[in-house]
Protein backbone atom coordinates (compact mmCIF):
# COMPACT_ATOMS: atom_id res chain seq x y z
CA UNK A 1 0.00 0.00 0.00
CA UNK A 2 2.92 2.27 -0.71
CA UNK A 3 0.83 4.47 -3.03
CA UNK A 4 -1.14 5.78 -0.05
CA UNK A 5 0.00 8.59 2.23
CA UNK A 6 0.86 6.94 5.54
CA UNK A 7 -1.70 7.99 8.16
CA UNK A 8 -0.45 5.86 11.04
CA UNK A 9 3.12 4.61 11.34
CA UNK A 10 4.22 2.28 14.12
CA UNK A 11 7.98 2.05 14.37
CA UNK A 12 9.30 -0.84 16.50
CA UNK A 13 6.74 -0.19 19.21
CA UNK A 14 7.01 -2.18 22.45
CA UNK A 15 5.05 -2.11 25.66
CA UNK A 16 5.86 -3.86 28.91
CA UNK A 17 3.40 -3.27 31.72
CA UNK A 18 4.91 -2.65 35.16
CA UNK A 19 5.51 -5.96 36.91
CA UNK A 20 4.82 -8.04 33.80
CA UNK A 21 7.28 -10.81 32.96
CA UNK A 22 7.11 -10.37 29.21
CA UNK A 23 6.14 -7.50 26.94
CA UNK A 24 2.47 -7.18 25.93
CA UNK A 25 3.61 -5.76 22.62
CA UNK A 26 7.09 -6.20 21.25
CA UNK A 27 8.83 -4.55 18.33
CA UNK A 28 5.71 -3.99 16.25
CA UNK A 29 6.06 -2.03 13.05
CA UNK A 30 3.14 -1.27 10.78
CA UNK A 31 2.15 1.42 8.33
CA UNK A 32 -1.51 2.21 7.73
CA UNK A 33 -2.17 4.24 4.58
CA UNK A 34 -4.68 7.08 4.53
CA UNK A 35 -8.11 5.71 3.72
CA UNK A 36 -7.04 2.16 4.41
CA UNK A 37 -8.88 -0.26 6.70
CA UNK A 38 -6.37 -2.42 8.53
CA UNK A 39 -7.47 -5.14 10.94
CA UNK A 40 -5.35 -6.26 13.88
CA UNK A 41 -6.31 -9.90 14.20
CA UNK A 42 -5.33 -12.13 17.10
CA UNK A 43 -6.60 -14.07 20.07
CA UNK A 44 -7.03 -12.45 23.47
CA UNK A 45 -3.68 -11.63 25.03
CA UNK A 46 -2.03 -11.22 21.65
CA UNK A 47 -1.41 -7.53 22.32
CA UNK A 48 -3.72 -6.15 19.64
CA UNK A 49 -5.77 -3.92 21.96
CA UNK A 50 -2.63 -2.71 23.74
CA UNK A 51 -1.13 -1.78 20.39
CA UNK A 52 -4.30 0.09 19.41
CA UNK A 53 -4.47 2.01 22.67
CA UNK A 54 -0.93 3.28 22.25
CA UNK A 55 -1.99 5.15 19.12
CA UNK A 56 -4.34 7.47 21.03
CA UNK A 57 -2.03 7.36 24.04
CA UNK A 58 -4.31 5.53 26.43
CA UNK A 59 -1.10 3.58 26.94
CA UNK A 60 2.39 4.94 26.43
CA UNK A 61 4.90 2.71 24.64
CA UNK A 62 7.94 1.49 26.55
CA UNK A 63 9.98 1.98 23.41
CA UNK A 64 9.46 2.81 19.76
CA UNK A 65 7.69 5.68 18.06
CA UNK A 66 4.19 6.22 16.71
CA UNK A 67 3.44 8.79 14.03
CA UNK A 68 -0.04 10.01 13.17
CA UNK A 69 -0.21 12.03 9.96
CA UNK A 70 3.55 12.32 10.01
CA UNK A 71 3.72 13.71 13.53
CA UNK A 72 5.14 11.91 16.57
CA UNK A 73 2.12 11.41 18.87
CA UNK A 74 4.18 12.65 21.80
CA UNK A 75 4.61 16.02 20.11
CA UNK A 76 1.06 17.07 20.98
CA UNK A 77 -0.87 16.71 24.22
CA UNK A 78 -2.72 13.41 24.58
CA UNK A 79 -6.02 15.24 24.94
CA UNK A 80 -5.60 17.16 21.68
CA UNK A 81 -4.42 14.06 19.85
CA UNK A 82 -7.50 12.09 20.93
CA UNK A 83 -9.89 14.76 19.69
CA UNK A 84 -8.54 14.16 16.19
CA UNK A 85 -8.92 10.38 16.39
CA UNK A 86 -12.31 8.66 16.58
CA UNK A 87 -12.45 5.88 19.17
CA UNK A 88 -15.01 3.10 19.33
CA UNK A 89 -15.00 0.32 21.97
CA UNK A 90 -16.91 -2.92 22.37
CA UNK A 91 -18.89 -1.79 25.43
CA UNK A 92 -19.73 1.44 23.54
CA UNK A 93 -19.57 3.55 26.73
CA UNK A 94 -22.37 5.96 25.88
CA UNK A 95 -22.98 8.55 28.61
CA UNK A 96 -26.18 7.27 30.27
CA UNK A 97 -27.27 10.67 31.61
CA UNK A 98 -27.16 12.34 28.20
CA UNK A 99 -29.40 12.07 25.17
CA UNK A 100 -28.21 10.52 21.94
CA UNK A 101 -27.69 14.02 20.51
CA UNK A 102 -25.68 15.17 23.53
CA UNK A 103 -23.55 12.05 23.31
CA UNK A 104 -22.75 12.69 19.67
CA UNK A 105 -22.06 16.37 20.38
CA UNK A 106 -19.30 15.58 22.89
CA UNK A 107 -16.20 16.39 20.85
CA UNK A 108 -17.75 19.23 18.79
CA UNK A 109 -18.82 20.80 22.07
CA UNK A 110 -15.30 20.54 23.47
CA UNK A 111 -13.98 22.06 20.25
CA UNK A 112 -16.39 24.97 20.68
CA UNK A 113 -18.58 24.53 17.60
CA UNK A 114 -21.67 26.71 17.58
CA UNK A 115 -25.02 25.15 18.42
CA UNK A 116 -26.44 25.17 14.91
CA UNK A 117 -23.39 23.49 13.39
CA UNK A 118 -23.49 20.82 16.11
CA UNK A 119 -27.19 20.14 15.54
CA UNK A 120 -26.73 19.83 11.79
CA UNK A 121 -23.75 17.54 12.19
CA UNK A 122 -25.65 15.42 14.68
CA UNK A 123 -28.66 14.94 12.41
CA UNK A 124 -26.38 14.20 9.48
CA UNK A 125 -24.58 11.47 11.44
CA UNK A 126 -27.80 9.95 12.76
CA UNK A 127 -29.06 9.70 9.20
CA UNK A 128 -25.76 8.24 8.09
CA UNK A 129 -26.14 5.56 10.77
CA UNK A 130 -29.74 4.86 9.67
CA UNK A 131 -31.26 6.28 12.85
CA UNK A 132 -34.01 8.80 11.91
CA UNK A 133 -32.97 11.97 13.83
CA UNK A 134 -36.45 13.09 14.89
CA UNK A 135 -36.97 9.65 16.40
CA UNK A 136 -33.59 9.10 18.06
CA UNK A 137 -32.06 12.50 18.83
CA UNK A 138 -33.67 12.87 22.27
CA UNK A 139 -33.58 9.27 23.40
CA UNK A 140 -31.45 8.01 26.25
CA UNK A 141 -28.89 5.25 25.68
CA UNK A 142 -30.86 2.77 27.79
CA UNK A 143 -33.78 3.12 25.39
CA UNK A 144 -31.66 1.74 22.54
CA UNK A 145 -30.88 -1.82 21.48
CA UNK A 146 -27.26 -2.98 21.48
CA UNK A 147 -26.95 -2.42 17.75
CA UNK A 148 -28.48 1.06 17.97
CA UNK A 149 -26.14 1.93 20.82
CA UNK A 150 -23.11 1.03 18.75
CA UNK A 151 -24.50 3.03 15.82
CA UNK A 152 -24.59 6.02 18.15
CA UNK A 153 -21.10 5.09 19.36
CA UNK A 154 -19.80 5.24 15.79
CA UNK A 155 -21.68 8.49 15.12
CA UNK A 156 -20.12 9.97 18.26
CA UNK A 157 -16.64 8.89 17.13
CA UNK A 158 -17.22 10.49 13.72
CA UNK A 159 -18.70 13.69 15.18
CA UNK A 160 -15.78 16.05 14.61
CA UNK A 161 -14.96 14.33 11.31
CA UNK A 162 -11.63 12.83 12.42
CA UNK A 163 -9.56 11.37 9.57
CA UNK A 164 -8.66 8.34 11.68
CA UNK A 165 -10.86 5.86 13.49
CA UNK A 166 -9.65 3.32 16.07
CA UNK A 167 -12.11 0.52 16.71
CA UNK A 168 -11.62 -2.03 19.48
CA UNK A 169 -13.82 -5.07 18.80
CA UNK A 170 -16.74 -2.73 18.13
CA UNK A 171 -19.14 -5.46 17.04
CA UNK A 172 -17.96 -8.17 19.45
CA UNK A 173 -20.96 -7.92 21.78
CA UNK A 174 -23.63 -7.90 19.05
CA UNK A 175 -25.69 -10.79 17.72
CA UNK A 176 -24.60 -12.25 14.38
CA UNK A 177 -27.23 -10.51 12.25
CA UNK A 178 -26.70 -7.05 13.76
CA UNK A 179 -22.95 -7.56 13.48
CA UNK A 180 -23.18 -8.30 9.75
CA UNK A 181 -25.38 -5.26 9.18
CA UNK A 182 -22.99 -2.96 11.02
CA UNK A 183 -20.00 -4.44 9.19
CA UNK A 184 -21.71 -3.59 5.91
CA UNK A 185 -22.43 -0.07 7.10
CA UNK A 186 -18.85 0.42 8.21
CA UNK A 187 -17.68 -0.58 4.73
CA UNK A 188 -20.21 1.81 3.19
CA UNK A 189 -19.02 4.69 5.39
CA UNK A 190 -15.41 3.77 4.73
CA UNK A 191 -16.03 3.86 0.97
CA UNK A 192 -17.93 7.14 1.21
CA UNK A 193 -15.56 9.10 3.45
CA UNK A 194 -12.19 7.32 3.04
CA UNK A 195 -11.49 7.19 6.76
CA UNK A 196 -8.31 5.53 7.91
CA UNK A 197 -9.47 2.72 10.17
CA UNK A 198 -7.50 0.48 12.48
CA UNK A 199 -9.84 -2.26 13.62
CA UNK A 200 -9.14 -4.83 16.34
CA UNK A 201 -10.90 -8.19 16.29
CA UNK A 202 -10.42 -11.84 17.14
CA UNK A 203 -13.04 -12.86 14.59
CA UNK A 204 -11.32 -14.20 11.46
CA UNK A 205 -14.43 -13.93 9.27
CA UNK A 206 -14.86 -10.31 10.31
CA UNK A 207 -11.23 -9.58 9.46
CA UNK A 208 -11.48 -11.25 6.05
CA UNK A 209 -14.66 -9.36 5.26
CA UNK A 210 -13.59 -5.88 6.34
CA UNK A 211 -9.87 -5.59 5.91
CA UNK A 212 -7.92 -4.03 3.11
CA UNK A 213 -5.01 -5.60 4.95
CA UNK A 214 -4.79 -7.81 8.01
CA UNK A 215 -2.01 -7.78 10.60
CA UNK A 216 -2.01 -11.10 12.43
CA UNK A 217 -0.75 -10.79 16.00
CA UNK A 218 0.50 -13.44 18.39
CA UNK A 219 2.26 -13.04 21.75
CA UNK A 220 2.75 -9.32 21.24
CA UNK A 221 4.29 -9.65 17.80
CA UNK A 222 2.95 -9.06 14.33
CA UNK A 223 3.29 -12.42 12.58
CA UNK A 224 2.27 -11.31 9.12
CA UNK A 225 0.72 -8.35 7.34
CA UNK A 226 -1.10 -8.74 4.06
CA UNK A 227 -4.39 -8.78 2.20
CA UNK A 228 -6.87 -11.54 3.00
CA UNK A 229 -5.92 -13.31 -0.18
CA UNK A 230 -2.20 -13.05 0.51
CA UNK A 231 -2.66 -14.48 3.99
CA UNK A 232 -4.83 -17.34 2.75
CA UNK A 233 -2.53 -18.03 -0.16
CA UNK A 234 0.84 -17.61 1.47
CA UNK A 235 0.61 -17.83 5.25
CA UNK A 236 4.03 -16.86 6.63
CA UNK A 237 3.86 -19.07 9.69
CA UNK A 238 2.01 -22.23 10.75
CA UNK A 239 0.08 -20.03 13.21
CA UNK A 240 -1.27 -17.81 10.46
CA UNK A 241 -2.23 -20.85 8.40
CA UNK A 242 -3.99 -22.39 11.36
CA UNK A 243 -5.71 -19.17 12.46
CA UNK A 244 -7.08 -18.37 9.04
CA UNK A 245 -8.02 -21.98 8.52
CA UNK A 246 -6.36 -21.77 5.13
CA UNK A 247 -6.94 -25.51 4.78
CA UNK A 248 -10.68 -25.01 4.82
CA UNK A 249 -10.42 -22.86 1.72
CA UNK A 250 -14.02 -23.19 0.54
CA UNK A 251 -15.26 -21.83 3.88
CA UNK A 252 -12.77 -18.95 3.70
CA UNK A 253 -13.71 -18.05 0.15
CA UNK A 254 -17.24 -17.51 1.36
CA UNK A 255 -16.20 -14.56 3.57
CA UNK A 256 -13.68 -12.81 1.31
CA UNK A 257 -15.47 -10.18 -0.81
CA UNK A 258 -15.05 -10.65 -4.55
CA UNK A 259 -13.86 -7.05 -4.94
CA UNK A 260 -10.59 -8.09 -3.27
CA UNK A 261 -9.78 -10.35 -6.22
CA UNK A 262 -11.42 -8.26 -8.93
CA UNK A 263 -9.59 -6.88 -11.98
CA UNK A 264 -10.61 -3.33 -12.81
CA UNK A 265 -11.30 -3.98 -16.48
CA UNK A 266 -14.62 -2.32 -17.37
CA UNK A 267 -14.27 -3.08 -21.10
CA UNK A 268 -13.93 -6.80 -20.51
CA UNK A 269 -16.81 -6.61 -18.04
CA UNK A 270 -18.99 -4.83 -20.58
CA UNK A 271 -18.28 -7.46 -23.19
CA UNK A 272 -18.95 -10.43 -20.94
CA UNK A 273 -22.12 -12.39 -21.47
CA UNK A 274 -22.02 -14.04 -18.02
CA UNK A 275 -24.48 -13.15 -15.24
CA UNK A 276 -22.93 -10.19 -13.29
CA UNK A 277 -22.13 -10.35 -9.56
CA UNK A 278 -22.40 -7.49 -7.01
CA UNK A 279 -19.06 -6.30 -5.57
CA UNK A 280 -20.11 -7.34 -2.07
CA UNK A 281 -20.56 -10.97 -3.13
CA UNK A 282 -18.06 -13.47 -1.79
CA UNK A 283 -15.36 -15.29 -3.71
CA UNK A 284 -17.40 -18.41 -3.19
CA UNK A 285 -20.29 -16.77 -5.04
CA UNK A 286 -17.75 -15.90 -7.72
CA UNK A 287 -16.66 -19.52 -7.90
CA UNK A 288 -20.24 -20.60 -8.41
CA UNK A 289 -20.82 -17.93 -11.05
CA UNK A 290 -17.66 -19.02 -12.85
CA UNK A 291 -18.72 -22.64 -12.88
CA UNK A 292 -22.13 -21.62 -14.20
CA UNK A 293 -20.59 -19.46 -16.95
CA UNK A 294 -18.25 -22.26 -18.01
CA UNK A 295 -15.28 -20.41 -16.48
CA UNK A 296 -15.79 -17.34 -18.65
CA UNK A 297 -14.85 -14.05 -16.87
CA UNK A 298 -17.69 -12.87 -14.59
CA UNK A 299 -18.49 -9.13 -14.58
CA UNK A 300 -18.70 -7.30 -11.24
CA UNK A 301 -21.19 -4.48 -10.69
CA UNK A 302 -21.08 -1.76 -8.04
CA UNK A 303 -24.02 -0.46 -6.00
CA UNK A 304 -25.23 1.69 -8.86
CA UNK A 305 -25.18 -1.25 -11.27
CA UNK A 306 -22.11 -0.15 -13.21
CA UNK A 307 -19.82 -2.90 -14.50
CA UNK A 308 -16.55 -2.04 -12.78
CA UNK A 309 -14.45 -5.13 -13.38
CA UNK A 310 -14.24 -8.86 -13.86
CA UNK A 311 -13.19 -11.87 -11.87
CA UNK A 312 -11.53 -14.79 -13.62
CA UNK A 313 -10.99 -18.42 -12.73
CA UNK A 314 -7.29 -17.77 -12.03
CA UNK A 315 -8.17 -15.06 -9.49
CA UNK A 316 -10.38 -17.36 -7.45
CA UNK A 317 -7.90 -20.19 -7.70
CA UNK A 318 -5.07 -17.91 -6.52
CA UNK A 319 -7.19 -16.63 -3.65
CA UNK A 320 -7.95 -20.15 -2.54
CA UNK A 321 -4.26 -20.91 -2.37
CA UNK A 322 -4.43 -23.04 -5.53
CA UNK A 323 -6.12 -26.03 -3.92
CA UNK A 324 -6.33 -27.93 -7.19
CA UNK A 325 -2.66 -27.66 -8.05
CA UNK A 326 -2.11 -28.58 -11.67
CA UNK A 327 -4.93 -31.08 -11.86
CA UNK A 328 -7.47 -28.68 -13.29
CA UNK A 329 -6.21 -26.20 -15.83
CA UNK A 330 -8.88 -24.79 -18.06
Amino acid sequence: MTHLEPAIVLDRVSKTFPGAARPAVSECSLTVGAGELVVLLGSSGSGKTTLLKMINRLYEPTSGTIYVNGQDVRAVSAVELRRRIGYVIQQVGLFPHQTVAQNIATVPRILGWDRKRIEERCDFLLELMQLPPEQFRDRRPRQLSGGQQQRVGIARALAADPPILLMDEPFGALDAITRETLQDELLRIQAQFQKTILFVTHDVDEALKLADRIAVMKDGRIEQVGTAIELLHRPATPFVRQLLGADDWLQRLSVVPVRRAMNAEPEVAAASSAQPLPAEASLRDALEALLRSDLKPVPIVDRRGRRVGVVRWEDVRAAAGDPFGQVVSP
Binding site: N56, L58, A78, V79, E80, L81, R82, R83, R84, Y87, I89, Q91, V92, G93, L94, F95, P96, T106, V107, I110, G153, R156, A157
Partner: peptide
Amino acid sequence: DPAVLEAAVGMGM
Protein backbone atom coordinates in the same frame (compact mmCIF):
# COMPACT_ATOMS: atom_id res chain seq x y z
CA ASP B 1 -18.95 2.26 34.47
CA PRO B 2 -15.31 1.95 33.34
CA ALA B 3 -16.46 1.81 29.70
CA VAL B 4 -18.05 5.25 30.08
CA LEU B 5 -14.80 6.62 31.47
CA GLU B 6 -12.70 4.95 28.78
CA ALA B 7 -14.91 6.48 26.10
CA ALA B 8 -14.64 9.90 27.75
CA VAL B 9 -10.85 9.73 28.00
CA GLY B 10 -10.56 8.27 24.49
CA MET B 11 -12.49 11.18 23.02
CA GLY B 12 -10.06 13.69 24.48
CA MET B 13 -11.94 15.05 27.46
